[in-house]
Design a protein around this nucleic acid. Structure first.
Lengths: 133, 133
DNA sequence: TTCAGTGCAAAAGATTTGCAAGCCG
DNA sequence: CGGCTTGCAAATCTTTTGCACTGAA
C-alpha cells in the first residue's frame, strides 16, 4: 500500500518524501488518528508540515476526516481500506469499525430518491459498546 | 416550541433569559448554523455567552452538533424537530434535510448485531444536488 | 438580596501563512 | 541547478476561563 501511494503521489506531481511517508504510516497505525496524535507521534516533524500533509492527502483522497464523538480524526480513504463506519463508546472511548452493506444500500436509495449524486458520506454512531453497556 | 424549551430550562434549574432565547431563535432559523453565523447574527451578545449557551443547549439535548462538510454546525435536537440527515451540495453549498426510515432501520440492525447500544448517530452525505449535477 | 447569567479581557488551543533554507530529481 | 518541501515564527481563528458586574426571581 505504501508503494501504491508513492506511485499515486508521483503521478500527481508530488514527491513521496520520508516525512510524508512517516505521516502516512502513523495514520495507518492509529487510525482514526487525531491531528495531535500525529503531531505527538512525530516530534521531528513540524506541525505546519503535518497540517499541510494532511491537506494534501485529503485532496488526493489518500485520507479523509471523520468525526468520532466531538472532534475530527484522520483515517485512510476508501481506496486504501474497506469502506466502513464507526461505533464509538462513550465510556471506554473505543472506536470499533463496522462494515454495513444494509446501510450503504439504504443511503443509495435515499440519494437516488432525491436526485442527489453522492460523492462521499460519513456515519458516526455514538453509544455504549457491549462491554460497557 | 419556545414555550416548551422555556419550561425545560426552568425544570432543569436554568433561567430562560432573553439572550438564551435569542440564540435559540437564531439556531431555529438558520439551522444548521455555524457558531460564527450565530455570533454574527447577534452582535449584542458576547461570543463567550454564545459558546456557553450552545454548551448548555447541548447538555440539555435542546441542540446538537452536526458536521456538514468540514466544520460543525448547530441545530435543534431530535426532541424539537424530526430526526433527519443532511445532503450537502459541494457546488451550491445547499444543505437539504432528508428523513430516512430505511437508513434508521439499517443502523438499528447494525448496532444490534454488534451488541452496541446506540445513543445517537450522525450521517452526512456530501455530493451534488439535482440542480448542480 | 442573592445567585445565576453575562461581558470583558486575557489565555489557551488549533490552524494557516510568508519567507528563507533544505532537499530531491 | 530549479523547484518542490520543510521549518520557523508570526499571524489568525476558535474556544475557554477568571473575575467583576448585571439582572431576574
Amino acid at each position: 500500500m505504501q508503494e501504491e501511494i508513492k506511485t499515486l503521489l508521483k503521478e500527481q506531481g508530488f514527491t513521496p518524501t520520508k516525512k510524508r511517508l512517516a505521516i502516512l504510516d502513523v495514520i495507518f497505525k492509529i487510525q482514526p488518528a487525531s491531528v495531535n496524535q500525529i503531531i505527538n507521534s512525530l516530534p521531528e516533524i513540524d506541525r505546519a508540515t503535518v497540517y499541510r500533509t494532511i491537506d494534501l492527502f485529503i485532496d488526493l483522497n489518500i485520507a479523509k476526516k471523520v468525526y468520532t464523538g466531538f472532534k475530527y480524526r484522520i483515517e485512510l480513504g476508501d481506496s486504501f481500506q474497506e469502506h466502513h463506519h464507526h461505533l464509538t463508546c462513550l465510556r471506554c472511548k473505543t472506536v470499533m469499525d463496522v462494515q454495513t452493506p444494509e446501510i450503504e444500500f439504504a443511503i443509495d436509495q435515499t440519494t437516488k430518491n432525491n436526485g442527489f449524486r453522492p460523492m462521499r458520506h460519513d456515519l458516526e454512531i455514538i453509544g455504549y459498546c457491549a462491554n460497557c453497556s
